[in-house]
């Protein structure tokens, strides 16, 4: 497989979309931009938010209190924490930071019933942005993403086309991070290219 064009870490292994994303490029006046966030760290954190010690201990490690409002996320420069359920969060970190974070959380939560599971490889994140990003999402997702109800800081889990996804909005461009299971990534990537075709698609690294 010729992927010399990809600026990879040494021996970083295979990412789900490596085979599909070889050469960046596409329409100059594109309506949507797509990229894969390769190998970003992903942990599933479970614990009881009504337990003060759980909240305090996780805050110490993350630098902020876990989001308790359903379908929102919070972030700082290192970690993005997405609410997934009343006792479940996704903690997204930079590539390579997941093992130490996993360790730190486990140590901080030694005396608290919890679980931290590394799922960095279980799924990947496709970043979709651009003026027509919302229109593309609306083609395959029944959740309302209108700016009156969905904005930066908001997140949801639902289906996009035939893939189950976790999605969160980063900014007003708008930019959406779409987390999808590894084996559905190439399907979803092709679907996004097809759905975005009428607006013009630019692929970024």
């Amino acid at each position: 497989m010729d992927d010399a064009a990809l600026p990879k870490q040494k021996d970083s292994g295979t990412s789900p979309l490596d085979k599909l994303i070889k050469v960046p490029g596409g329409a100059k006046d594109a309506g949507i931009f797509l990229k894969e966030c390769r190998h970003s760290g992903k942990l599933i954190l479970r614990g009881d938010p009504s337990d003060d010690l759980f909240i305090k201990s996780t805050s110490k490690v993350l630098g902020y209190k876990l989001p308790l409002t359903p379908n929102t996320f919070l972030k700082n420069s290192e970690y993005t924490s997405v609410w997934l359920g009343p006792n479940e969060w996704l903690v997204n970190s930079l590539p390579g930071d997941d093992s130490s974070l996993e360790n730190d959380l486990n140590i901080a939560l030694t005396d608290v019933h919890h679980s931290v599971t590394n799922v960095s490889d279980n799924s990947t994140i496709i970043q979709l942005s651009g003026p027509n990003a919302r229109s593309v999402i609306m083609k395959g997702c029944a959740v309302d993403v209108h700016p009156r109800v969905f904005n930066p800081g908001d997140a949801f889990q639902s289906n996009l086309a035939a893939a189950s996804v976790i999605m969160w909005q980063l900014n007003l461009i708008p930019t959406f991070n779409i987390m999808v299971r590894a084996s559905f990534a190439s399907y979803l990537w092709k679907w996004l290219l097809d759905a975005g075709a009428e607006f013009g698609v630019q692929i970024r690294l």
Binding site: K19, K139, A161, A182, S183, S186, Y187, L188
Partner: peptide, 18 residues
């Protein structure tokens, strides 16, 4: 709609597919 051909149903492959 566009649920045709390759997009009819997701085809899942393992990482060792190649």
């Amino acid at each position: 709609g566009r649920n045709l051909g390759l997009l009819f149903d997701p085809v899942r492959t393992t990482v060792m597919n190649e």
